[in-house]
């Protein structure tokens, strides 16, 4: 059964990760691998599109926390978009909106990275 998918797209100096399904302790390593791959390739401008993400637990939230410091040290960021109210509520309960930029729309988030140097 396929319960979680990570899909990655590159364009305009920004990498987009599309999440689909359930992000829990079982599937969190898949997202870790996706972040690790981008960091290894020195791609630090990252947008995570949560449009098709139906569930997240603290194991999934922990992945964002594990990589944000590395990414920001390299003048990049992880911005989140297109969350359902249910998924947003979990991020909100843990105070994530203070630390992460969350946008309604992917294009808006991509635009926040500004023009390429």
């Amino acid at each position: 059964m396929s319960e979680f998918k990570v899909h990655h797209r590159d364009g305009e100096g920004v990498s987009v990760i599309d999440l689909k399904g359930y992000l829990d302790a079982h599937t969190a390593p898949d997202l870790e691998n996706a972040f690790q791959k981008l960091i290894n390739e020195k791609k630090f401008n990252i947008v995570v599109n949560c449009r098709d993400l139906s569930y997240i637990s603290s194991a999934g939230l922990g992945v964002f926390m594990a990589y944000i410091e590395d990414v920001r040290k390299n003048q990049g960021d992880i911005k989140l978009t297109n969350m359902s109210p249910k998924v947003y509520n979990v991020f909100d309960l843990l105070g994530f909106p203070i630390l992460y930029e969350i946008y309604k729309d992917e294009l808006e988030a991509v635009g926040k990275f500004g023009p390429r140097k």
Binding site: A59, M65, L93, L94, I98
Partner: peptide, 22 residues
């Protein structure tokens, strides 16, 4: 202390916090 906890990017302990909050 959630804000402090998050700003130090510590992953552990969030599950217990969530259980008590939910």
């Amino acid at each position: 202390d959630l804000k402090q906890h998050l700003s130090s990017f510590r992953r552990g302990g969030l599950g217990v916090y969530l259980m008590r909050t939910l």
